[in-house]
Nucleic acid binder design. Structure first.
Lengths: 229, 229
DNA sequence: CTTGTCTGATTGTCCGACAATCTGCGGCGG
DNA sequence: CCGCCGCAGATTGTCGGACAATCAGACAAG
């Protein structure tokens, strides 16, 4: 598509046509990983993927590079790319890093842009609504992590938000492996409401401590669910 | 290793044993950017670089992808990759993000691994020594930023350190453009010594405030030197 | 059971090709 | 004279094939 020479009218296709073949391939690979279609540690063969996705090996290779950069896969020289396998240490590190980033957001609650504060409330609402509506674990995780990212956004720093999103991506990889095992996302929803209530009461200190416990707990839960003691 | 056909390279090729051609190409591009051989905004043409580096276009393309991922360059669809141009807003954001990361390290001074504390002292020593020895700007910047990264390492989180290094890379890009203009790196060295002394005295609060001022000042100075008001 | 070698599979890199797209220039009409 | 149109060159995005280097497993030898 994309011809029609005589047309000079600007079409709406400009917005989503922004997708290149590499982007689509990378997105498909991400989906396959999060959907659990490929297990952790599975090697991603270039030729096989090229055939399966109907694109050239060069394109697959570039898409794999994106996955590796996102931390969803690892590349070993001359041994190719395989789906990253979450280690207990990396889960702990992700949560420690999250504590720093989200803690910074929480501490900045008072001075934060009102718009960002509103976004936190909205993210919480979407999360609790999704829980009440009994959405899929995938959707719940998505809303849950989006809420935590919205906390980082309180800092007003795009780069910290980007860093937080990278951490969440890594976490989603880990969660993709234990999705069906755990369902206590419910309690977490209430826990998050409590966190925001502390913030609304300007109890930044308390909210910080709450967050610290919450993340500590999250790390333990995930590691336990992964069976990595 | 792979073959390297006749090349028009203007400089000696670096052989690091277990490094791929892509890595070497990316490293060469980084060097060219930091060395100021290419100005900000300069388009990086794939065929020209392939010829200049003596590698294939595929390899150049992959190396450019690395540069883009590092934030040293930007890619616009169908318009290619060009050296990123630092904006005032991005410099401010980098410094705000640094404050969060380095602040977390400073606050964790007491609980930090003694090895990491020692590394901070060593990084400071290397920096001040380099200043005393009258090293080049490039070397001073390198030591200076390494010191700040060592503060982040106090958190013990590899991911936060990686994030900090990414921020420093972006900052180096900005500094590469105003290198010769600034000379007050000296005062900064003393300032850093004072910071560590506060830490040694367990005055974490004071050190944090000190760091906050330091980073605020750094942002202003860099933006001013860039002439971006 | 250990060790060395062979063979097939896979990656890293190169080359050439082509359509789609961008950019700058010159012509045409107003 | 100015602005719009389209053309030609340059550049990217993607493809397909090729080959050496390297890795993994089987297999034979000690």
């Amino acid at each position: 598509m994309g011809r029609m020479p005589g047309q000079t009218t600007a079409f709406a296709t400009l917005h989503l046509d922004h997708s290149s073949t590499v982007d689509r391939a990378a997105e498909e690979l991400r989906r396959a990983v999060f959907e659990g279609e490929v297990e952790s540690g599975t090697p991603l063969r270039e030729v096989a993927l090229a055939a399966s996705l109907g694109v050239s090996r060069s394109t697959v290779r570039e898409a794999l590079g994106v996955l590796v950069a996102e931390g969803l896969a690892t590349r070993e020289p001359h041994r190719g790319v395989s789906v990253a396998r979450p280690a207990a240490s990396s889960v702990r590190d992700v949560c420690r890093a999250r504590l720093v980033l989200e803690g910074a957001g929480v501490r900045g609650w008072r001075d934060a842009d009102p718009v960002d504060r509103r976004r936190v409330r909205e993210a919480l609402a979407r999360y609790t609504d999704a829980v009440a509506a009994g959405d899929s674990f995938r959707a719940l995780n998505e809303h849950h992590l989006a809420f935590h990212v919205s906390l980082v956004a309180l800092t007003g720093s795009p780069r910290l938000v980007a860093a937080a999103e990278a951490l969440m991506t890594e976490l989603k990889l880990a969660l993709a492996q234990v999705d069906r095992i755990r369902r206590n996302t419910h309690d977490q929803a209430e826990s998050h409401t409590a966190l925001v209530e502390l913030l609304e009461a300007d109890d930044v200190e308390g909210a910080g401590a709450f967050l610290c416990d919450h993340l500590e707990d999250a790390a333990v839960q995930v590691i336990g669910a992964l069976g990595l003691g």
